[in-house]
């Protein structure tokens, strides 16, 4: 009988304790990306681009070269990086406000150009860092500090399904939504993130991966209840799945 470590912190992750609130599933996403970097053996060939928002410190936890972009512009910064270093793996990570509100232009056009980058999009349906305001992905009826009676679609419109929107662009090779609210989904999410990176490494083009995540603090729920809330409210509106895979031609 030998004792084997079957689960440990990925090597591409630093030792720093993450700043995320207790139970915020963003930490799982940080770890999955590091695991993918380890498994693909690309730590020394990766350049990451980070957002403004709750993930603004994500560079503290990945031991890779990193550029900190301004709010919403990570895909433009990543474009600049990738054009200079076409042989490196370039990925961006953004939250919902960053990518689907202020940075809509940048993500749409990076996608339309078919930039050889992997864009990760963490959707927790709220502005976390600024204290819980309505996000472009806030669910209709969801209470936030700027929709105190719940998001009213007659005044505040509807959540943006960015990942589906991008799937119709010819420049997009891969478009998928995953979630990290259960062990099975965490395993699936990692596979999809890995696929996005592999698509870039094979030179097959642009990939967007949306990852549903929780925000216990600003949802006003316990971490465990947040998981349940995500299942009951977010998943029905933002279904998990692949919207476009390599080889598909959009009609």
């Amino acid at each position: 009988m030998a004792v084997k470590k079957v689960f440990t912190k990925p090597a591409s992750m630093t030792d720093k304790t993450m700043h995320f609130c207790p139970g915020c599933t963003h930490g799982i996403i940080q770890r999955l990306v590091a695991e993918v970097i380890d498994e693909l053996g690309i730590r020394e060939d990766t350049i990451a681009v980070g957002p403004v928002g709750c993930a603004v410190f994500c560079y503290d936890y990945w031991d890779v070269d990193f550029q900190q972009a301004s709010h919403g512009r990570a895909p433009a910064v990543a474009t600049g990086v990738k054009r200079v270093h076409p042989d490196k793996v370039v990925f961006s990570l953004q939250g919902d406000g960053d990518i689907a509100a202020i940075g809509t232009t940048e993500i749409v056009h990076a996608a339309a150009r078919g930039e050889q980058i992997s864009c990760l999009f963490v959707n927790n349906s709220i502005y976390g860092m600024t204290g819980g305001q309505m996000a472009p992905t806030t669910i209709v009826g969801q209470k936030t500090t700027t929709t105190p009676d719940g998001r009213d679609s007659s005044r505040a419109g509807y959540p943006v399904k960015l990942t589906e929107m991008l799937a119709v662009l010819d420049g997009v090779t891969y478009s998928a939504r995953v979630s990290v609210h259960s062990p099975a989904n965490v395993v699936k999410a990692k596979k999809v993130i890995k696929k996005a990176f592999e698509i870039q490494m094979k030179g097959e083009g642009f990939a967007i991966v949306e990852i549903l995540s929780t925000c216990p603090t600003n949802w006003g729920l316990s971490p465990v209840d947040s998981i349940k809330w995500l299942e009951d409210n977010v998943l029905p509106y933002f279904p998990i799945g692949e919207f476009k895979t390599p080889g598909e031609v959009s009609s």
Partner: peptide, 26 residues
């Protein structure tokens, strides 16, 4: 070299950020 017509001036300057941070003359 690379010429890229960006979707806006905002994107253009942020592409400059990325390229400059990557060590290029831009």
């Amino acid at each position: 070299g690379t010429f890229l017509q960006a979707e806006s001036e905002i994107s253009a300057i942020n592409m400059v950020f990325g390229a400059a941070g990557s060590g290029a003359r831009v």
